[in-house]
């Protein structure tokens, strides 16, 4: 298993390079222009000059090479400098001063380093999207397990109904609906997420909770619906297997049978879905973030896409790709741990 993990890790480098190249060429092929949002009152010659200043006209391969150098050489240097200068962990080391003012990955919209903006966005994305994922998983697993155990009970039927309706109604509808009910009519929660809010005491924590609750619920509904369906289906497959009968026959308690034997064998599809979902947390939730003005990474990606801010889109999708590859690797390793019969070597 260890050799497998190491082999996969080494292989992931060329994979990621290839993925980044495909994404880059896709973005180059896609129609679009960073000047699209510039008003029509600005004459075309001026727009052309602005494009040149951004480096748009250069050949695609040159642009790709520059981007590679910036991401894999310049940005790590900035990061190491930050580690040895400001971070708590390694701040005692002498300042390395590796970064000598080379050009970093610069966003075309804001003319500032992409990484700085990404770091700025991570807190609210983790708070809202990450928390909703945890909430979703925590609700979905018990629902899935119990609905399978008591198949066709009232609980199962109600759970199926609620989750499927929840899944088939898109967040662009549930979001505004919650805002109308809870912000406009009841006035309980704010409809606009305040990203500058600092939590430092009980009052501010309560405010943070009140502004997070609606987006978290909208997102958790989607996660719950999806996960609980897979959990239920997978449990049902296993509950009628011979080994369950054997376990019961040798006198194991129901709790041990269900929670240890069946659950462990049912986790494979569920682990896959969970692992696929984690990179999506970092990708943010485009629609929900927009509806509640959370302005996390999802909103960053969509505004960059609409503004054709290629360095930003490229860097974000690459981070995303990196996480996908890593979490799929983790899922594959988990399969082996859950079911020792699965062997990759």
């Amino acid at each position: 298993m260890l050799t497998y993990a190491i082999r996969r890790l080494v292989l992931s480098v060329p994979t990621l390079l290839f993925i980044s190249f495909v994404i880059f060429m896709l973005l180059q092929l896609a129609p679009g222009d960073p000047m699209a949002q510039v008003p029509l009152t600005v004459p075309p010659e001026v727009k052309q000059k602005m494009r040149e200043a951004l480096g748009v006209g250069e050949p695609a391969l040159v642009q790709y090479w520059k981007w590679l150098v910036q991401v894999f050489w310049t940005e790590p240097k900035v990061f190491i400098d930050w580690l040895t200068r400001d971070s708590f962990l390694l701040g005692w080391l002498p300042d390395t001063n590796l970064y000598q003012g080379e050009l970093r990955v610069i966003s075309w919209q804001t003319r500032s380093p992409v990484m700085d903006i990404v770091l700025q966005r991570i807190p609210q994305t983790l708070w809202v999207v990450g928390l909703s994922y945890v909430v979703g998983v925590l609700i979905a697993l018990p629902i899935g397990i119990y609905s399978a155990y008591r198949q066709y009970s009232t609980f199962d039927q109600a759970g199926t109904f609620v989750t499927m309706v929840g899944f088939s109604i898109p967040p662009f509808f549930t979001g505004p609906l919650l805002i109308v009910i809870f912000s406009v009519y009841l006035g309980w929660f704010p409809s606009i997420y305040d990203t500058t809010h600092v939590v430092n005491d009980w009052e501010s924590f309560k405010y943070q909770l009140s502004q997070m609750i609606m987006p978290v619920m909208v997102l958790a509904l989607q996660t719950t619906a999806q996960l609980s369906r897979y959990m239920r289906a997978s449990m049902l497959d296993n509950l009628n297997q011979d080994y369950v009968r054997t376990a019961r026959a040798k006198g194991l308690s129901e709790a041990v049978v269900v929670m240890v034997h069946v659950l462990r064998n049912s986790m494979i599809p569920v682990i896959t879905v969970i692992a696929l979902g984690v990179p999506a947390i970092f990708g943010g939730a485009i629609i929900t973030e927009n509806v509640f003005k959370v302005n996390g990474i999802g909103q960053l990606l969509i505004t960059a896409l609409f503004a054709n801010d290629l360095p930003m889109v490229m860097t974000l999708t690459f981070i995303f790709a990196f996480l996908i590859v890593m979490f799929n690797l983790i899922a594959d390793i988990l399969y082996g741990l859950l079911d020792p019969r699965i062997r990759y070597d």
């Binding site: 993925i19 495909v22 994404i23 990179p279 889109v313 999708t317 790709a321 996908i324």
Partner: peptide
Amino acid sequence: TDLFLSLPILPL
């Protein structure tokens, strides 16, 4: 599969 998962849908 990893490649398709990481492709941004809108430009595609």
